[in-house]
Structure formats: structure tokens, C-alpha cells
Design a protein around this nucleic acid. Structure first.
Lengths: 249, 249
DNA sequence: TCAAAAGTGTTCTTATTACACCCATGG
DNA sequence: CCATGGGTGTAATAAGAACACTTTTGA
């Protein structure tokens, strides 16, 4: 550990010569990456999109999709790029969670990674022809085994963040098709929160928010009473927020 | 932007030769830093400890204390080191918030920073002889002006996190001396939340949690009825958490 | 006519809010 | 004896939890 007084402070108040390479070059032998926990929902389970590694280290292991951040690329852009390269999707919900920076988290060098999660409609995802995408598969959250690197820890942190966020912001809809039934919505929440919810209380609460647009359409071809279809009313939500409303489920 | 199929994925499933320097060396021309929002409370205002920069860039501007992360140092360790070098304190509350990685956030190179905040008892802080610490001053949060780099954005993010966390975990006590009155505790919450609280309701709620140990001691030397002194009961808190309790104010 | 999921209200309990006066001390 | 902040309880309202039966469809 450095002794007191050598403090640098974002290139330091006291270090005039911070750019002498003899002093500073070792700081530039590191890299940063982004890793993206891509969540999907198939009507029953919450899923995460993992790729199987084709090269060492951790060859054959499942891992989160990620990549090194390019020198001229914002970290958010890097996360969007990883998502788009794997799924072809743009403009989906994406949130940074935190950085993971243990010294030995990557066996081949010092790599700090920034963890993101994104929410996609699983039906929008089609396997792209790119070779890396061939090795991608959806995994049910509860059945994810041991992952490469510190990716289990990253997945856990993103899951915790999602569980919290889904109760305080209307982001659950990002995982559903544009038209959905109240039961589908409830099952989504139950899958994320890992908790059964009371049907009547759930419907009462969500409908009272006035965020769902009743499409006056019904399910078709189901062997039971067809459910009404709803859509998330984003315009209303934004107006309510402007008036001081905050989503709370 | 890279074209599809060149995806690397934490050194990639498909890149056998990722370590050929011709391909990868440009990723290692970056650095990471930590920046630490050190909060304190003086009985009236929430404060943040800033340092005045003595060198370009942003010479003379106030900035968050921070430093580059050493090649063999965990990021949390780096944040602890920054805190200790500036304040002499160890083992205080410290939490990572998120990474900031805009390409041009640092004018002299590509530096991604990981933001932390910490909570210290302002009375424990004494200016250390180290030269960098001479330039450190406590600033009332509401009076912080324009800071160096993207430090206003970082401060805002840490403040938002603190506001949330202080309601869901008993971390407010980290900012108070070991013995405190209920009014001091309430004023702390009011300063952080920027909101007046009802005295009776606040006391009822906090005392009902059984987290405060009544020390059977009174304030001395005050020109009014002396208040009872309390202490945070960490043992009780940990036991309650184990039993399923969660702090909520 | 059966199976399967949709849809719908009320009661009870718990938490939140609003609010005003007497008390103990030092100056 | 005055000024200052400490300390206390209750009633009204709102939010959350528990709970069961009828409806509509396809097979």
C-alpha cells in the first residue's frame, strides 16, 4: 500500500508529473469489460440468456455475454453493443448495476467489469447467424449452475436489483408482449419475486394505478374463458410521474 | 463499432488468440479510478468532504477525493485506501454505487471511475498533516457548486443512493456519535431526506423497532430539559434480521 | 357436461397521519 | 420566571391481507 501523501486524486492535486510514464504506465495495463444479464420471461419462468464459452479460460462453461469496452466507447454503449450483437435488439431496457473489480476475477489479466441487466421480450429474440450466438441458450434462473468467472455473483446482484426495481418502476412490461393478460402480468411478478400473489389484490392494485389500457380484445383459442388483453399506457405513466405519482407494487 | 461475429465475451468464446497484442493492446491503454463521496453530519447539515485540486486539469476546482486503482488492488480496497489516506479512518461504512465511464469524462485520458460513498462521524475527522489533506474541506450538500470532472453527477448518484438506503437499513447511525439523542437522529434524517418529519411519529416508529439502547444518561449543560441518550443496538439488529426483520423508516 | 382459467367484493387488521400540551433545565 | 427544546397519546384515515364463488370457453 502507498504511504500517505502520495495521494493522486483523479490525477491528483499534488502530482504535477503524473504523466511521466515511469510512474503511471502500470495503471494502463488493465482493461474493462461489460457483462450483461439479459432477462426474458416465457410465461412461466424468468430466464437468463447465457453463452457457452468456446475458448479458455473456462472453456465449455456457461457465462454471461460480455465484451471488452473499446477505447472510444462509453460503457453504456458497450453494453448496448453486446446486447445487439447477440440478439439483434436495440432500444430495450438496460440498467447498470455495479462494477466488479476483484484482482483475480479474470485469470488472464486485470479486468474490471461493469455489470448491466436488460429486459427483452423473449419472443423478439431469434438466434442470429453469428457464430457466438449459436452457443447462446436461455436458462431458467433457478436452474443456472456454476458459471465462468465471477458471473454467479454478478447474476445475483442483477437479480436483486431487478427484484427491487420491478416493484418501484413499471419495467415488468418490458418482458411481456405488447398485449398481455392480467394473469400473465401476475405470473411475471411471481416469477421475479419468487412469491405467490393474491389474484384479487394484485388486480385491484394494478388496475387502480390507471396504467393499463383495456384493449377490449380477448384471448383466442384457449380452452377456458378468454382473458381480456391489456397494454401498458406509457403516456399516462409519464404524466402521472410528472404529477408526483410513483409506481409501487 | 465492431461487426457481428467478432464478439469477444470476456475474452470470448470464439477468440482463441485474444492475447495477440496486435489485437488487444489498445484495450490496455485505459485506467480506472475510484471516487469517494465522504458524508458527514454536523448536527444541522449533511456535509461532503471535498478537496481542492492543486494541479491541472481543473486546478483550483473542488473535487471528490479519489485515486487510480493499483494494478494489484481490489476496487473496494482502493476506496478504503482513499478514505484512510484522507481521514485516517478505517472500518467505516463504505458502499459502491456505480461506475461512470463516458469516453471524455477525464480530459487527459480514458479513465473509468467507480463511485463509492462512505459515512463517517464528522468529529472523528481531523485534518491529517499530508499535503493533499490540507486542501480538504467539508461542504454543506446544498451549497456544493460546480465540481471538477463529472463529480456533480457522481455526487448526485451517491446522494440518491444514500437517501434510499437510509430508509431501508440502519446506516444513519454511522454519521452520529456513539451516544445521541432522538432529536439528533431525527435531524439527521431530515437533513438527508430534505423533508420535515413529525416528532411524535418519528419517535414512536424508531423506538418500536427496539434498535435503540436507552443508556439512562442525560445530556449535560444544555439550557433546556436535557434529552436522554441512546445507542444503536447492533446485536439486536443482527438478531432481528436473522429472524426476518427488515428496517423500514 | 366437464375441465380450466377468468373475473369479481367485502371484512378485518395493520400502518400512517395529524395534532397540542406539560416538563426540565440554564440563564 | 422566561426561553428553549424534550417528551408524550389518541383518533381518523388509508393501505394491506385474507378469503370463495360464478362465468366463459373448448374439448
Amino acid at each position: 500500500m502507498q504511504k500517505k501523501g502520495q495521494y493522486v486524486s483523479s490525477f491528483g492535486p499534488d502530482k504535477q508529473n503524473i504523466y511521466r510514464m515511469s510512474e503511471i504506465e502500470s495503471f494502463f495495463k488493465s482493461a474493462f469489460s461489460v457483462d450483461n444479464v439479459i432477462f426474458g420471461f416465457d410465461g412461466g419462468d424468468l430466464k437468463v440468456l447465457l453463452i457457452q464459452r468456446g475458448a479458455a479460460p473456462y472453456k465449455g462453461k456457461w457465462a454471461l455475454p460480455g465484451d471488452l469496452v473499446y477505447p472510444n466507447e462509453d460503457i453504456n454503449t458497450a453494453a448496448e453493443r453486446v446486447l445487439e450483437q447477440l440478439t439483434g435488439l436495440r432500444g430495450v431496457y438496460l440498467e447498470q448495476v455495479k462494477a466488479f473489480g476483484a484482482v483475480n476475477r479474470h485469470p488472464l489479466g486485470r479486468v474490471i467489469t461493469i455489470a448491466y441487466y436488460s429486459l427483452i421480450k423473449i419472443s423478439d429474440y431469434v438466434v442470429t447467424p453469428a457464430s457466438f450466438a449459436q452457443s447462446a441458450r436461455w436458462h431458467t434462473i433457478s436452474e443456472v449452475g456454476e458459471l465462468a468467472f465471477d458471473h454467479n455473483e454478478i447474476l445475483d446482484a442483477c437479480l436483486r436489483r431487478l427484484k427491487h426495481k420491478v416493484r418501484t418502476a413499471p419495467i415488468g412490461f418490458e418482458l411481456l408482449p405488447p398485449k398481455f393478460t392480467l394473469t400473465e402480468l401476475q405470473q411475471l411478478y411471481e416469477a421475479i419475486l419468487v412469491e405467490k400473489l393474491d389474484k384479487r389484490n394484485f388486480r385491484k392494485k394494478i388496475l387502480a394505478m390507471n396504467l393499463l389500457l383495456d384493449l377490449n380484445e380477448l384471448q383466442e383459442g384457449v380452452a377456458h374463458r378468454p382473458a381480456k388483453l391489456y397494454q401498458f399506457d406509457k403516456k399516462n405513466y409519464e404524466q402521472f410521474v410528472a404529477e408526483g405519482f410513483s409506481f409501487d407494487l
